[in-house]
């Protein structure tokens, strides 16, 4: 080969935590997400906001493979999620749902669905979410909405996840319980857990967001992460 001129390669953009590459999600004829092309960075709280039916929850569920793209791909630190073991992925990327989802049994039984643990370890976990250790033996079905949602957060944290997905997790709670959960999640983010938080509440978004992404009719229409 003759002499060649070294062409400087373009600066490599470091991959985000999640990279959505031209992602479409369709259900039959209905398009739920269309051409979403966005990078969610590591750290902080990324708030995904938009009206009902805008595709926020679907975007979140793509991150732990409860949904898969119809077209395009989602990367986690540069690796295509489709190539990762979904069971292992979901232990790294935990999720708290819109309404509390207690399983039958006691609070301790619930925590043990996520991980084997003895009562002292379970009590420490409850303490992290501001619940007293006495609740361990309570039937989970008898908890208040706020307590049940905090137990669900503790259950998710029991997996040792490094990312937390929260799908309108305060929408079924009264304002006081919602603020408690917000503060807990803010503390987790400050301690290094990356949080993706779905909401349609503008005031909540302003209170907690480090980064924002606004969706409407399945498209990214704004926010600090919009390209």
């Amino acid at each position: 080969m003759g002499d060649t001129v070294a062409v400087p390669s373009p600066p490599l953009q470091p991959p985000g935590l999640f990279d959505f590459e031209q992602v479409w999600v369709c259900d039959g004829d209905a398009v739920i997400l269309r051409d979403v092309d966005v990078t969610v960075p590591e750290g902080g709280i990324t708030v995904i906001r938009g009206p009902s039916g805008s595709g926020k929850s679907t975007l979140l569920r793509l991150c732990n493979r409860l949904e898969i793209p119809s077209r395009g791909r989602v990367l986690l630190r540069g690796r295509d999620l489709a190539t990762l073991d979904p069971v292992a992925l979901r232990r790294r990327v935990g999720m708290v749902f819109q309404t509390p989802t207690p399983f039958p049994g006691t609070v301790l039984d619930n925590l043990r669905v996520a991980a084997d643990m003895d009562p002292p370890a379970a009590a420490r976990l409850l303490e992290r979410v501001g619940l007293p250790a006495e609740l361990l033996d309570r039937d989970a079905a008898t908890l208040s909405g706020g307590e049940a949602q905090r137990m669900c957060l503790a259950r998710t944290l029991a997996t040792g996840c490094e990312v937390l997905l929260a799908d309108e997790s305060t929408s079924s709670l009264d304002p006081a319980a919602a603020r408690v959960l917000e503060e807990l999640v803010a503390q987790l983010a400050a301690a290094g857990t990356t949080v993706l938080w779905v909401t349609h509440d503008e005031a909540q978004c302003e209170r907690i967001a480090t980064h924002t992404l606004f969706l409407d009719h399945g498209r990214v229409v704004g926010g600090s992460l919009a390209r």
Binding site: L66, R90, G94, F97, T101, V113, T159
Partner: peptide, 13 residues
Amino acid sequence: RDVVEARLALGRT
């Protein structure tokens, strides 16, 4: 569905 998916989201099969 939420309860089933909550188990899946905890890394259960």
